[in-house]
Design a protein around this nucleic acid. Structure first.
Length: 598
RNA sequence: GGCCCCGUGGUGUAGCGGCCCAACACGCCUCCCUGUCAAGGAGGAGAUCGGCAGUUCGAAUCUGCUCGGGGUCGCCA
């Protein structure tokens, strides 16, 4: 070993020891005859002092040291001179009095300093990711990620799960996201696909009798990126045989509680996890991934406003829409500019607009409301009684702003839930150190796709319909609920799972609803259906987004922060410069011909 | 594919029609300095303002296109 102790681990008790350490020069403070170096390794910083009285050659060599040089230093651990201790450093009571210095490797001046809280452009960070990752914060996130996966391995192993690796080169299936494709050399004109998830493979493993499977699996999707979406992400994939929904949910809940307690013992965790149905989530929060750390619940006020003779509302109702509202506490003072901003937000989420009622705080209760106490663009049409009843249903108080959306249920929910999330953040309505997990279940199996004019699977095609809804499969698909459950944390969907179909007949019926022909089914899913014919156990499981989980646990708001080598928004890698053009021979070998681009 | 924001020495920012062949901080280089820890002091180098085209007597500044980065809708679980 080049070092016999880690820098950050040295303490007062080590005084008197003669040691050798190694690491990167973090800072140098050259006082002429006395040179201080902050030596960094993964464990932390250690101050090294070069004193010509201790070693004139070491001191002489230390004069040329620069940032990020890799060095090896030997010397004695000594107590710092009284008054010069550094309480900000764990090693601040001691220092290394150097008597030997070896320069292992020099460094160019780095493009940016290795320091947290430095606001560097993402592109530069990614180009020099190997330096970026030296920052203590990034090291801590790498460690956090390791701790989470280790906890998963330990916990699931103890629960009888075994880890099985599944192939990365598999078959393309057209449903779901766009596949990343790999051309085959041996089968010209044919392609492999990278897995969007090991879904079908793990179901096969259940048929194989593995009973309890898990994998930290890489998943690939060739779709546009977002702050919480990378083309390549990691999921904790797990599957269990002979289980019902409760069994999977309970196991995953226990696992996630363990993870949080293990890696974030001081943060607050609400237990047991809240469980609500899809319908309730939509009704109360307008989304299937509610952040329940704060209130601001939505209300339908259709009944109250339906007979006020207000044109926008009536039109919406005639076309089957609904009137929903959200109360922003203490925002009754909002001026035109602020409400306009809310309208912009609504429009960017597909809404046509918003109606506001601002209640002033001249009164101490809604009961005392009179015509002077509220403002609204539709004030002429709103009687005191109407505002009172709206306030009562929505629980609005004096000083509040009532936001109303008239649209179809889906759009109204989308608009208000995004408004809710945004305002929850702005009004600081929640504790950022809290982890609030929610189970959402009772999802519909299908949703109607307007563009395709067809039913499509809400989650994926393998989720089992609820036993009691099987009879509606052909007659009223929209009514069929699935054995489907999502895990949500702080408003992020971090996992989703289901009890799967395990027989050919039901699976075929579901395929038929989505409009797959016999030929489609045969080409895409024969392997799975064939497997079901040879004794398939009932099974179910989940896929859980590891990157998102670690992002939340790490208090980050971008998934790139918790991935060692992430891609840019255009799915490129500035460090390796991928993707890249290929040489002619490589392409010829694959039998690929390029269309000229226009 | 749509919308929004950003691009100025190595890094982060200022400048937003002439005062700018561009300012500040950090970093970098040279010298001084024995208790600093964002060390200090003195001096110095370094950007034709992402690229192209245009408007103008004059462009970092205005316009168009383009490239790159970020956010978001669509898309995606």
């Amino acid at each position: 070993m080049y070092k016999d102790v880690n820098n950050g681990e040295l303490r007062k008790g080590d005084v008197g020891k003669s040691i050798t350490v190694a690491g990167w020069v973090s800072r140098r403070r050259d006082h002429g005859n006395l040179i201080f170096i902050d030596l960094r390794d993964r464990s932390g910083l250690l101050q090294v002092v070069f004193n010509p009285k201790i070693s004139s050659s070491a001191h002489k060599n230390a004069q040329m040291l620069r940032g990020e040089w890799v060095i090896q230093v030997s010397g004695d651990v000594v107590q710092r001179i009284k008054g010069s201790e550094n309480p900000d450093l764990p090693t601040g009571d001691i220092e290394l009095s150097a008597d030997k210095l070896v320069v292992i490797s020099r460094s160019k001046t780095p493009p940016f300093e290795v320091d947290d809280d430095l606001n560097i452009d993402d592109l530069t960070r990614l180009k020099y990711r190997f330096i970026d990752l030296r920052r203590p914060k990034m090291q801590a996130l790498l460690k956090l990620r390791h701790d989470v996966t280790r906890t998963i391995w330990n916990y699931l192993s103890n629960q009888g799960f075994i880890q099985v690796e599944t192939p990365i080169l598999i078959k393309s299936t057209p449903e779901g996201a766009r596949d990343y494709l790999v051309p085959s050399r041996l089968h010209k004109g044919q392609f492999y696909a990278l897995p969007q998830s090991p879904q079908q493979l793990k179901q096969m493993l259940m048929v194989s009798g593995v009973e309890r499977y898990f994998q930290i699996a890489h998943c690939f999707r060739d779709e546009d990126l977002r702050a919480d979406r990378q083309p390549e992400h990691t999921q904790l994939d797990l599957e269990m045989s002979f289980v019902h929904q409760e069994d999977v949910v309970n196991l995953v809940e226990a696992l996630f509680s363990t993870i949080v307690k293990e890696v974030r013992p001081t943060n607050s965790l609400s237990e047991p996890f809240i469980r609500i149905s899809y319908d309730e989530a939509m009704e109360r929060f307008g989304t299937d991934k509610p952040d329940v750390r704060f209130g601001l619940e939505l209300n339908s006020i259709t009944d109250i406003v339906s007979n006020l003779g207000i044109n926008v509302f009536n039109k919406t109702l005639e076309s089957g829409g609904t009137i929903r509202s959200l109360v922003l506490p203490g925002c009754g003072y909002f001026v035109r500019k602020q409400t306009d901003e809310l309208i912009e937000l609504a429009k960017s989420n597909g809404g046509k607009g918003l109606v506001f009622i601002s209640i002033d705080n001249e009164i101490n209760s809604i009961e005392k409301l009179s015509y002077e106490n509220y403002r609204s663009p539709i004030k002429k049409l709103l009687s005191v009684e109407a505002v009172k009843s709206i306030s009562n249903v929505t629980n609005a108080k004096p000083g509040d702003l009532i936001v109303i959306v008239a649209d179809d249920y889906k759009v109204a929910n989308n608009v208000l839930s995004n408004l809710r999330t945004e305002m929850g953040k702005r009004l600081k309505l929640y504790d950022t150190s809290e982890f609030s997990f929610v189970w959402v279940d009772n999802f519909p199996l299908f949703e109607w796709d307007d563009k395709e004019s067809a039913w499509s699977a809400m989650h994926h095609v393998f989720s089992a319909p609820k036993q009691e809804d099987l009879e509606y499969l052909e007659t009223d698909p929209g009514k069929v609920r699935a054995e489907l459950y999502d895990l949500v944390c702080n408003g992020h969907e971090i996992g989703s799972g289901s009890i799967r179909i395990h027989d050919r007949r039901t699976q075929t019926r579901v395929f038929n609803v989505i409009g797959y022909t016999k030929k489609d089914i045969d080409e895409r899913f024969r392997h799975l259906l064939d497997a079901f014919d040879y004794g398939a156990p009932p099974h179910g499981g989940m896929g859980l987004g590891l990157d998102r989980l670690i992002m939340i646990l790490g208090g980050e708001d971008n998934i790139r922060e918790v991935i060692a080598f992430p891609k840019t928004q255009a799915a490129s890698d500035p460090l390796f410069d991928a993707p890249s053009f290929l040489g002619k021979s490589q392409i010829d070998e694959l039998g690929i011909l390029f269309k000229p681009t226009d």
